[in-house]
Structures are given as structure tokens and as C-alpha cells.
Amino acid sequence: MYLPKVSIVTPCFNASEFIEETIKSVQSQTYNNWELIIVDDNSSDNSTILINNLKKTDNRIKLIELNNNVGPAKARNIAMENAEGKYIAFLDSDDLWLPSKLERQIEIMEKHDLILTFSNYRIIEENGELTSKVIKVPEKINYAQLLGNTIIGCLTVVFNREKTGDVRMPEFRDCPEDSALWLSILRSGSEAVGIQEELALYRKTKGSLSRNKIKAARKTWNMYRKLEKLNVIKSSFCFLNYSYNAMKKL
């Protein structure tokens, strides 16, 4: 049975507390044809030592070590430039996947010839304790709808690079670079498909953007004005929708 390769993009910066658990959640996947490309963004802790220890026994794990800190967007772009897979998936260095994540998503994408999918995910505490909060996603979302929504969790996204071509995250630190990438993929009229299953666990750490609502709001406004080039009226309309949908996620 043909199993297309999935390239998993993981930026890493001082993630020694969580990176082993994150990698093991990939190794526990029921879908085996993957490569995990970890780009270490000049960590000062022992993240790379832990990664290399796991890498010794699994040649699907690849580590790229940077000499300067470049930020998560550029780190992800470097990983994508080195990716070999038909599909690109994202997993940050403190988040986790459930074992059937890739198998379910690739099965659906291959069957229906989809460009981008995402799924429900559960919030976990910093110590890994499960919460009752599950982010549930719509069945589909298009460019216009996504402008006013943050429902697509980066840790759940898989896209088909044969359909998107070589896309990149904008390396503009004061914007939500992941949302900007999804918008760039959907701008041509495609729809992203939401899988109504809980496939990943998002760790809410002290430094996570979701905890800093003011910072997240500013970045979203900058995306409208500086990246999407929307006028003030359109930006304000989208921002009201964004604020409403963000409140629903709390």
C-alpha cells in the first residue's frame, strides 16, 4: 500500500523540558512514513543533546542546528526548504500528537484530494495534565472566513505541497505567521477541511501566545494591514469577527 511521506516541521528553542515527549508522540504514530525535521534555533539549554540521543536510534529524525536565533517562522521555513515529503505537517516542540493523527489525516486527504486539513485539539496544562477544553473546528473554512478566525491550530495542520508549491511563512515577527501562511494557501479560492476528531494536544505554557491576548490581537491587526493589505474598514470588520471568535475559544 502506497504511503506518501509526511515532513514534520518542528522549530525548537530551549525546549529541553518537553522536546523528548514531543518526539516520542511522533514516534508513536500509527503512520510510519514520516521525517521529523527539527530546527534548533540556537538553544542555550541541552535540547540538542536530547534530540541527538533519540536521533541515534531513529533515522527519520533530522536535526538542523542554527548558529543564530532567527525566530520560529524562519526556523519553520528552513525545515520546509529541507523537506522531502508530499505533505507538510507542523508540531511545535512542546505540543503532542495522538497516535492516530497522521494516519487519519493522510487517509482523508488522499481519499478526497485535499489541499489543507486541520482538526480538533485539546488544551493541556504546562505539566501535561489534560483539561476539559477541546477546540472544535468547522467542517470547512475559506479565505474570507479565516480572516476573522483563529480556529486553525498550527499543531493540527497538514498541507499538500504538490498542490501549494513551495510556500513560506512570512518572516515578520509581529504577526501570526502561521495564520498568514494558511491565508496565503487559501487565497486562491481553496477551502481548508476541518476533521471533527481530537488528534493533538496543545500545551498552554506561560510563554504561549494564547495567554497574551493583547499581543495576539496586535499581531492579528498587523497581519491585516501589513501582509493582507486590507484597508482600515475591512481590517476593522475582520478584527471584530476575530475578537468574537477568540472569545468563544476561551
Rank of each mutant, 00 (worst) to 15 (best):
L130Y: 12
A83F: 09
K163E: 08
C12L: 13
S44N: 11
I88E: 05
Y244E: 02
I38W: 07
V6T: 10
I38Y: 06
N33M: 12
K62A: 01
W221E: 04
M1D: 07
M169R: 07
L250H: 09
F237A: 04
N46V: 10
E84Q: 14
V26P: 02
D113I: 10
D94C: 12
I135L: 12
Y87E: 03
A73D: 06
T22I: 02
P138L: 13
Q29L: 13
W182I: 13
R225T: 14
N142S: 13
A180F: 01
S132Y: 03
I19K: 02
S179E: 07
Y242I: 07
L147C: 15
G85P: 04
H112Y: 15
F172D: 05
H112T: 10
K213Q: 12
Y202P: 04
A217T: 09
W182C: 03
E84K: 15
V157G: 05
K226G: 03
C154T: 03
D113S: 14
K219T: 00
T57S: 13
Q27A: 10
L96T: 00
D174N: 14
F90Q: 01
I8Q: 00
K249P: 00
L114K: 07
W34F: 15
M169L: 15
E65M: 12
E110H: 04
C175W: 02
S16H: 09
T205C: 09
M169H: 12
Y31K: 13
N52Q: 15
K248I: 11
I123Q: 08
P138C: 12
N53A: 07
N127V: 07
C12Y: 04
E84D: 14
V137P: 02
R218G: 00
V134Q: 05
N68A: 11
P170W: 10
I115K: 14
C12N: 14
K213W: 03
C154G: 11
L186G: 05
N241P: 00
T117F: 05
E177W: 10
G85T: 10
C175H: 05
N231K: 08
F239W: 01
N82T: 09
K213S: 11
I78Q: 05
R60A: 04
K74E: 14
R203N: 13
K55D: 03
D41I: 09
V167K: 11
E81S: 10
R173C: 08
I19A: 01
F172N: 05
R104D: 08
P138K: 04
I8W: 02
E228Q: 15
K133L: 09
N67Q: 15
